[in-house]
Write a protein that binds this DNA or RNA. Structure first.
Lengths: 210, 210
DNA sequence: ATTATCTATAGATCTATAGATAATGC
DNA sequence: ATTATCTATAGATCTATAGATAATGC
């Protein structure tokens, strides 16, 4: 049924997958094309045959990842068919789950955008999408709820920054936070599960929503 | 009065300062010893004469920075002579100000600990200090306040993670957040000032403190 | 007769040191 | 007579390509 692929993965795909792992873990500067080729199980020359340069290969990966990250923010908070409290709870949880499932993604994007701010142009479209579509709609829902006395007034942008801040840090800084919590939790995953609920509560308490 | 220093900065100090900047901005893998030497205004050979290897120079910088970061957390929240609400407000603000004044520090530490988790041992002493001294004291204050009906009960560890999360993200991800906020604020510094107060409020509302 | 793969190596970049020379402190 | 500095270059590491060979699709 697929366009191709009776055989497992073709060389190009194997290189892409290995490159994704290497770049996300070590960043552009720390990644080695020879390491990528080896992990993909192909000779080093193949990497250059398919992608010409390290830069072009990197460009492929970071474009894909930035688009993904933009989409997930929009996707998590975009469902406006729910009552505000539910929309926020689900948004925080979905966002948290995505970050937990892609733990090196935020560090990767933050680092590479810092190193080359012009890379933001790749995200600009999704970022503009967030700013206008999501924030506009969310803000009017918050305002309406506050006007009815169902919750505290709040700035939708600030709320979004709150949520992203709270969700990213325990995943990005896992080794450090892990060493702080020590043996308080059974595992770091148990801590993360508790943290997800804690973040939902923090936001709902801020809105004082009923 | 000083031990030395009639002349501006000696070579060793110039190299250290240049190295700090280069490593914090580009990380270990992205930093170049030749770039450091050039920025310090000395020949490349001098760097190796004083510090032998890139690794040893890096070790000097990261040890200093990890200790600093540990100390600041302890320092910001350690003043237990204040009423709880004031202690938290001042702690959040002091911590925020320190991060804003050292914007590449969190990214640097998070990246280098991720790349080499064994580096956590450098921080272990300060980290243990935080876990026991700070959290223990803070927790009993929170408990006492809650018992008197002055605030909601809360877990001191979770509260600390909340604060650090909220304070770090807008500084670490400044280019990205800046592009999301667009022209809403006069400058990114204006946004950060607003953000500091917002973070204080978020925490106080979570505690529902009066 | 085009596409994919391999071996071998060039070429670029970076870290590190050798060895000579100048400056400094007894 | 020790410490600091410079020039020159070795040595290691990494990216990229040349050129030959094998596989694949008409």
């Amino acid at each position: 049924m697929d366009k191709e692929a009776p055989h497992a993965e073709d060389t190009e795909t194997k290189i892409l997958h290995a490159a994704e792992k290497e770049f996300l873990e070590k960043g552009y500067a720390g990644a080695r094309t020879a390491t990528i080729a080896e992990a993909a199980g192909v000779t080093h020359a193949m990497l250059h045959y398919y992608f010409r340069t390290k830069d072009k290969l990197f460009e492929r990966i970071i474009t894909e990842k930035m688009t993904l990250l933009g989409d997930i923010v929009l996707g998590a908070f975009g469902d406006s068919s729910l009552p505000l409290a539910e929309r926020i709870r689900q948004g925080v949880e979905q966002h948290f789950d995505f970050i937990a499932a892609n733990p090196s993604l935020p560090r990767f994007i933050i680092n590479e955008v810092y190193a080359h701010p012009e890379r933001l142009r790749i995200m600009e479209t999704s970022v503009q999408g967030i700013a206008s579509r999501l924030l506009g709609g969310l803000q009017s829902e918050i305002d309406e709820s506050a006007a009815r006395g169902l919750s505290r007034p709040a700035d939708a942008l600030m709320l979004l920054v709150d949520i992203i801040s709270l969700n990213l840090f325990p995943v990005m800084a896992a080794p450090i936070v892990g060493s702080i919590i020590g043996g308080t939790y059974e595992s770091y995953d148990a801590f993360l599960a508790a943290r997800k609920q804690e973040n939902v509560e923090t936001i709902l308490k801020k809105l004082n929503i009923h």
